[in-house]
């Protein structure tokens, strides 16, 4: 079976941004994503902002190398300044790469 190397881009951020991030990821061209709700954590910004809504979410998306870079740049530009957010990418191997590209 043909394996392809893609990037698994992960964003961890405030729960309140979930819907907006997902919308923007789709606009950037991702074909799919997975959200894990109810994660919690601490970073350099201090306390999570809005307790009411659960704390943070993890959004993951498998994409090609170029789109991965675009997503990371996009998040940096639009969210690093004002929001609790981190973004990182891992190397992943998948089958059926056409599903993600």
């Amino acid at each position: 079976m043909q394996k392809t190397r893609l990037k698994l881009v992960t964003i961890i951020t405030e729960a309140i941004l979930e819907d907006r991030m997902v919308r923007e990821l789709k606009q950037l061209g991702v074909r799919g994503y997975t959200v894990t709700g109810e994660v919690r954590g601490e970073g350099t910004r201090g306390l999570p902002t809005v307790d009411f809504d659960g704390q943070s979410v993890r959004i993951e998306t498998l994409v090609g190398h170029e789109l991965a870079d675009q997503i990371m740049a996009y998040v940096a530009e639009n969210y690093f300044a004002d929001y609790a957010v981190i973004v990182y990418s891992l190397d992943a191997e998948v089958l059926r790469s056409e599903k993600y590209l």
Partner: peptide, 15 residues
């Protein structure tokens, strides 16, 4: 208010 403000005025300090 926190939900609206966090989105519309992100530069305000939530603390």
């Amino acid at each position: 208010a926190p939900a609206a403000v966090r989105i519309a005025l992100p530069q305000a300090n939530p603390s």
